[in-house]
């Protein structure tokens, strides 16, 4: 079947089977491999994306169900010119990631939180991110990152000029 939706602001249309999950459509169909699959059971949160602004598990949804919707994935977080979103930068600064496998899902859940609340407490952040499992960090550094990003976003963007992250090397 044909399905059409917007991904990170761009309209896409693709041919999928009715049973193709949204996660597989993004990863295999569109090559957007930033959305990760950690369980395909709806538990780990690695596949979290925003659908019309709300976080959903892309592994639990069929691609056809996203028809006409607007999808945001981790690939759509940074600005056009590559400037990182404050959350992405804060994850780097605070060592909010190790292997990075849970990170796209964490970023999506955190983004959704910061869209709704400008200065969540640590406890709130912990609650909101409890649908995303991280096996590496022990979480405190992720909470640090979300807090730091919230502060920066609340303080206004101007005096927090984005910095480049040293790129990958291998």
């Amino acid at each position: 079947m044909k399905v059409g939706f917007t991904v990170n602001g761009e309209a896409v249309s693709m041919e999928v089977e009715p049973r193709t999950t949204l996660a597989d459509a993004l990863r295999e169909g569109l090559g957007l491999t930033g959305t990760h699959l950690g369980c395909e059971q709806g538990v780990c949160g690695a596949c979290t994306i925003l659908l019309d602004g709300r976080p959903i598990r892309a592994c639990l949804m069929f691609a056809v169900q996203a028809s006409g919707c607007s999808v945001t994935t981790v690939e759509g977080m940074a600005a056009e010119d590559g400037t990182l979103h404050p959350l992405q930068r804060a994850f780097c600064d605070q060592h909010g990631l190790q292997c990075g496998f849970c990170t796209p899902g964490m970023l999506m859940s955190a983004l959704h939180l910061l869209h709704r609340e400008t200065s969540p407490t640590r406890r709130r952040i912990r609650e909101e991110l409890s649908g995303n499992i991280c096996r590496c960090t022990g979480y405190a550094s992720i909470v640090d990152a979300v807090q730091a990003a919230a502060e920066e976003m609340a303080a206004g963007m101007d005096d927090a000029a984005p910095t480049e992250v040293t790129g990958g090397t291998t």
Partner: peptide, 8 residues
Amino acid sequence: DGRLVTGH
């Protein structure tokens, strides 16, 4: 981190 936080 640069590649990991951007989905790359």
